[in-house]
Simulated assay, not measured.
Amino acid sequence: MEIEKDAVTTIFKQGIKIHVIFLLSLFVIAIVITLQSPDPEQVMPKAILVYLLMVACVYSGRWLGKQFPWKKSWLFLILIFCFLTCFFSVAGIFGMAYFLGYKDGADVSALVVITTLLVMLHVFAGTIITVIRMLTRQQIKESRILQYQAETELNLLTSKLSPHFLFNTLNNMYGLSREDPARVPELLLKLSDLLSYTLYSSDGPFVKLKEEVDCIKNFVALEKIRIGDRLALDVHIGGYNPSINIAPMVLIVFVENAFKHAKNTVRGSIQITLKLWADADFVYFELENTSGVQSAVFDNRPSGMGLVTTIKRLDLLYNDAYQLNHGTKDSRYVVKLKIPVHAAH
């Protein structure tokens, strides 16, 4: 998968830079210590030995760390760690004893303890560095894969949602064209604006709140033409920052569903109440219609994909940061939606 390949390539390139910086840093430290000593010629071999021993221990530890995912036996890892510690400790002790001029019978206990501790520390450090790097690389892979899957699912849900919305609007146009053809031109102008929004403005994960509000206004105007005097509409759109971002085709779905099901009210007027406002933290949206029972039934039908996919999109984009309550209350279908402003970037 390309996502995994990019992640590995990036980490590999960064890893080479880190290795070069690490080796150069150790080398510079060895040179500085050598030059600052009273007798550089005597210190130089010891410094080179310590430098090579540290590098060998660290990279041996890195090799050991790479065995961690493959070797489930802790005994194997412990034995290899002990072997590496003993090997490099013996090499370091004999090398330092030679350069320091230790003779037979000399007390080398302090040298043994110090060398062994340094070897263990560097082997362990190399192992830990590798394990952390591998875990980080795995997390990057998983996060990018999850992001890719979320974007793919979001695109699929959006592509299902927009045709559903347009399908219902075209059905309304067809019915009106047979009952009152004179109203069709005005309805086509409104539909043009809706098409522009659904085809262009909703391509990204977020749009400006003003665009969604304008879409709602166009849709409401379209429905007023279709329904006529039977519509008792109460719309309250309060103040809001036009630059606020929101997921596209979210609010309009609830509005579209309200009109779709309220039209099934044969007797009396069609009553729909819509409220929208925003503050610095949240966008608030409330909606009520007079056919709650029918709306609830519609949600379970195959054709009612709009509300289902909208909730899935909200889950993908806002996780648990949004609040949605919808259902029947006193023979009315009520929707209350609260969307965080700062989560939409």
Rank of each mutant, 00 (worst) to 15 (best):
M1E: 05
E2D: 07
T10W: 04
G15A: 13
I16Y: 12
K17L: 08
H19R: 05
H19F: 06
V20I: 14
L23A: 08
S25G: 15
F27M: 13
I31W: 08
V32P: 01
V32T: 14
I33Q: 11
Q42M: 12
P45S: 04
L49T: 10
Y51I: 03
L53F: 04
G65L: 06
Q67N: 08
F76K: 09
L77N: 09
I78T: 10
F81E: 06
C82A: 14
C82S: 14
L84R: 02
C86W: 11
V90Y: 12
A91S: 13
G95Q: 03
M96V: 04
A97E: 05
Y102G: 00
D107R: 10
L111V: 00
L111S: 07
V112R: 07
T115W: 01
T115D: 00
H122R: 07
G126F: 08
T130A: 03
T130Q: 14
M134D: 09
T136N: 06
L146H: 08
L146Y: 09
N155W: 06
L157D: 08
T158R: 13
S159D: 13
P163V: 02
L166S: 04
N172P: 01
M173E: 02
M173N: 02
R183P: 03
E186Q: 15
L188Y: 07
L189K: 15
K190V: 04
K190G: 04
S192F: 06
S202K: 06
G204K: 15
P205H: 11
V207P: 05
L209R: 13
E212I: 10
C215N: 13
I216K: 02
K217C: 07
V220G: 06
V220T: 13
V220H: 03
A221V: 05
L222W: 08
K224T: 15
K224E: 15
R226E: 05
R226C: 07
I227M: 08
A232C: 06
I237C: 07
N245C: 11
N245H: 12
N245Y: 11
I246V: 15
V253W: 02
V255T: 13
A258E: 12
K263M: 05
N264A: 12
T265S: 09
G268K: 13
K275F: 10
W277P: 01
E286Q: 15
L287K: 01
E288K: 11
T290Y: 05
S291D: 11
V308M: 05
V308G: 00
T309M: 03
L317Y: 00
L317N: 04
A321M: 02
Y322S: 05
H326V: 00
D330M: 06
R332T: 10
Y333F: 13
K336N: 11
V341N: 07
A343E: 12
